[in-house]
Amino acid sequence: MTSPDAAPILPSKHLLGIEGLSPANIVALLDLAETYVVQGRATDKKTALLRGRTLINLFFESSTRTQSSFELAGKRLGADVMNMSVKTSSVSKGETLIDTASTLNAMRPDILVVRHQDAGAAELLSRKLDCSVINAGDGAHEHPTQALLDALTIRRHRGSFEGLVVAICGDVLHSRVARSNLRLLSMMGARVRLVAPRTLLPCDAERFGVEVYTDMASGLAGADIVMMLRLQLERMAGAFVPSTREYFRFYGLDREKLNRAKPGALVMHPGPMNRGVEIASDIADDVQVSLIAEQVEMGVALRMAILDALARGMA
């Protein structure tokens, strides 16, 4: 790997969001992640880079892929990984987030990966803990590792981001994935579009330097990448969208809508998918267009790169 004397890959000991990263940070992270893609495909996937270090996964919201991805990344780098989910933590017994932080701090972890339902939770923990904090999703604010793994996936297929048209479709309003991707992709020179019914678009979306569409046909026209977002089940029952069938009819990605995009356009989804809601099964399963499985693989490699980058600052 690169020499410890090189310029730091990350600007701080925490990774709280895409906000605060520079294009150079992102390129360096993606370059480092490429080496872990190779390592992840080797027979011996394990190194001792983080031997003796402790990584705590603190998840206040249930997650399968992000949590297991971090767990695997930590273990492949030799760290001791502990998973704490909300059901087993003392938060369910009334403890405040700050109390939980103090308790965890006393255990002297080196890296805390946190997912919380409230925006700003990771930021708060980073100020109360001595260790590095990685934001694995805070409310509708940021999910930086998802945006970075998406960027890694895109770059492996398209080489660069400059001028790439990326349509982010679906529940933008509640999506931290959309916010982090929007920040990262715009910073790297891509043209970002948001496509959603008005009930699922944030107020003043136009002011974020993106193009906003309320119909898929025009939103997907000429797109290089179609990034679908998950529609939470509780949003479907009339509050934001009248029904699943109406959502799928107008906003679900099927072959007909995808045909509006540029020939060879690629489809992404952060998972878990709602088949027949935001995406048709034949698109999700079409290996010619769907990068969904690859995103998962890139997720592990990218998270190893982040752990590596943070560990260098700890030495």
Binding site: A237, G238, A239, P242, S243, R245, E246, R249, F250
Partner: peptide
């Protein structure tokens, strides 16, 4: 709104 109940919107597009 469904059933004129004033609670959940109807399938306006369809």
């Amino acid at each position: 709104t469904k059933g004129l109940a004033g609670e959940t919107m109807t399938e306006i597009g369809l």
